[in-house]
Amino acid sequence: SEFQINEQVLASWSDSRFYPAKVTAVNKDGTYTVKFYDGVVQTVKHIHVKA
């Protein structure tokens, strides 16, 4: 599913667990740039983002 900029989502971290994050960019290659609550910004594949 498509997510929008500033949408609150759950994004997987390197430990494969999902954490609350905010979408900061929707990228043309189908990835999302997300910002976790601790301030870390990461680009993740769409399969690693869920509502």
Rank of each mutant, 00 (worst) to 15 (best):
S1N: 10
S1D: 10
E2P: 12
E2C: 15
E2T: 13
E2A: 14
F3W: 09
F3P: 04
F3H: 05
F3Y: 09
Q4I: 07
Q4N: 09
I5C: 07
I5E: 06
I5V: 14
I5S: 02
I5H: 04
N6L: 06
N6P: 02
N6S: 05
E7G: 06
E7W: 08
E7T: 09
Q8H: 14
Q8K: 10
Q8V: 12
V9G: 01
L10C: 15
A11I: 10
A11H: 03
S12Q: 15
S12I: 15
W13Y: 15
W13P: 07
W13M: 14
W13D: 08
W13L: 12
W13K: 15
W13F: 12
W13N: 10
S14F: 09
S14W: 10
S14D: 13
D15K: 02
D15I: 04
D15W: 03
D15G: 15
S16L: 09
S16E: 14
R17L: 13
R17K: 14
F18P: 05
Y19R: 05
Y19W: 10
Y19H: 08
P20Y: 08
P20S: 03
P20L: 10
P20V: 09
A21D: 01
A21E: 03
A21H: 03
A21S: 01
K22P: 01
K22N: 07
K22E: 10
K22R: 11
K22G: 03
V23I: 15
V23F: 01
V23H: 00
T24Y: 07
T24D: 03
T24Q: 09
T24I: 15
T24R: 00
T24E: 10
T24H: 05
A25E: 07
A25H: 10
V26D: 05
V26E: 01
N27V: 00
N27Y: 02
N27C: 07
N27H: 11
N27A: 04
N27P: 01
K28C: 10
K28Q: 13
K28F: 10
K28P: 11
D29Q: 01
D29M: 03
D29L: 03
D29V: 00
G30N: 06
G30Y: 05
G30W: 05
T31R: 02
T31Y: 05
T31P: 03
T31V: 01
Y32H: 01
T33Q: 11
T33M: 06
V34F: 03
V34K: 00
V34W: 00
V34I: 08
K35G: 04
K35R: 11
K35S: 08
K35C: 12
K35T: 10
K35N: 04
F36K: 00
F36M: 05
F36Y: 05
F36L: 04
Y37I: 10
Y37H: 12
D38Q: 05
D38W: 15
D38N: 14
G39I: 03
G39V: 04
G39Q: 03
G39L: 03
V41R: 04
V41Y: 10
V41F: 09
V41I: 13
Q42T: 10
T43E: 07
V44Q: 00
V44N: 01
V44T: 02
V44R: 02
V44S: 01
V44G: 03
K45H: 11
K45S: 14
H46P: 14
H46R: 15
I47C: 14
I47V: 10
H48Y: 13
H48I: 07
V49I: 15
K50A: 09
K50D: 08
K50T: 09
K50Q: 11
K50S: 11
A51P: 12
A51G: 10
A51V: 09
A51C: 10
A51Y: 09
A51L: 12
